[in-house]
Simulated scan of single mutants.
Amino acid sequence: MTEFDIPVPDERARTAAQDRLDGLVKPVGALGRLEELAAWLAAAHGSVPPAELEDVRVVVFAGDHGVTRAAGGGVSAYPREVTAAMVRAFLSGFSGVNVLAAQVGARVDVVDIAVDDDLDGVPEAVARHKIRRGSGSIDSEDALSPDEARRAFEAGLRIADEAVDAGAQLLIPGDMGIGNSTVAATLVAASLGLPAGEVVGTGTGIDEVGLSGKTAVIEAALRRAGDRASDPFDLLTALGSACAAATAGFVLGGARRAVPVLLDGVFSCAAALVAHDIAPEAARWWLAGHRSTEPSQAFALKTLGLKPILDLGLRLGEGSGAVQAVPTLRAARGVLAGMGSLADLDIG
């Protein structure tokens, strides 16, 4: 059902990279996952060695989720007002992802796609793609209208295009929105036909009582939506959010432009799962940056055929886990670019 023309990575470059890796000054396969990533990058860039990853862009999609006001509440350990406060933190440069991205020279942009606040004093560019203030509480109503879901998805596509046109060589989707792990778990459950109890996680750190309430909210959302998961845009309308729709567009947009996308935690992986339903070939251009502590991410990654690069027990979101995988990708590229060949050794 795809309407997108997704390029195919260069398999000849992948084969050439693997042949070179096998002939480097080391036992065959001795660098493990680094070799796999090096060959993947060669295929993505169509060259051996791949291009250096100099321009890395993190785009944090910020928005509020109405599910934080669900009957019974308690899906997050923090109030929804934190979302707006964190947008200001990103702009000030002292959030977690700002600090971590600075270590690898990555740029961080924040997009107000559905923050339930006017964000007075924030640069107008931050809200130029805004779809609405907040989203519906998915346990009792649709998150978005069909038009809003489409517009948010298209905004994500445009943002990816803008980043690539500006020179981005690697895209990282970030997320900020209280209640986003509930939305992500619900999307994964609906998409894969899983019960709420298998996908629900503690998110920002809720206790056992909160976890029980969160499970009940997801169960209610799944019952209300019924079989609407069969269409990805209907799924985003019923159970997603503007952030989820925009992130789905963003990760698909990177693939459409043949630019690698490094997925972050549970939210970006849930959005990627929906994007995969729209254009399955897009997954050829995605890597998983890290393993989240949220159970639903593991289900999404298995379906997408992706294996996390890092496993650090992270659950912050924002793109913070993915940026820490950038040095590993650069190391993989460096292996192809810098190591010598066994044939050049003087062992005579």
Rank of each mutant, 00 (worst) to 15 (best):
A246T: 10
A258E: 13
V251I: 10
G253L: 07
L236C: 13
T237D: 05
G240K: 00
G254M: 03
A244L: 14
A246D: 14
C243S: 15
P260C: 06
A245R: 04
R257S: 11
D234W: 10
V251W: 06
G249A: 03
T237H: 14
P260M: 09
F250D: 01
L239Q: 07
A244V: 12
P260R: 04
S241R: 09
D264I: 06
T237R: 11
P260A: 08
T247K: 11
V261Q: 01
S241D: 15
L252I: 13
L236F: 14
R257T: 09
A244M: 11
L239P: 08
G254F: 01
G254K: 00
A245S: 15
V251N: 03
D264G: 05
A242L: 08
A255Q: 06
V261R: 07
A238N: 13
V266A: 11
A242G: 15
V266F: 11
L263Q: 01
D234K: 11
T247F: 08
A248T: 09
L236V: 15
L262N: 03
D264K: 00
T237W: 13
G254R: 01
L239I: 14
A242N: 12
A248C: 10
D234A: 15
V251G: 04
G249E: 01
L263D: 00
L262D: 06
L239G: 13
A242T: 04
L236T: 08
L263W: 01
L252W: 04
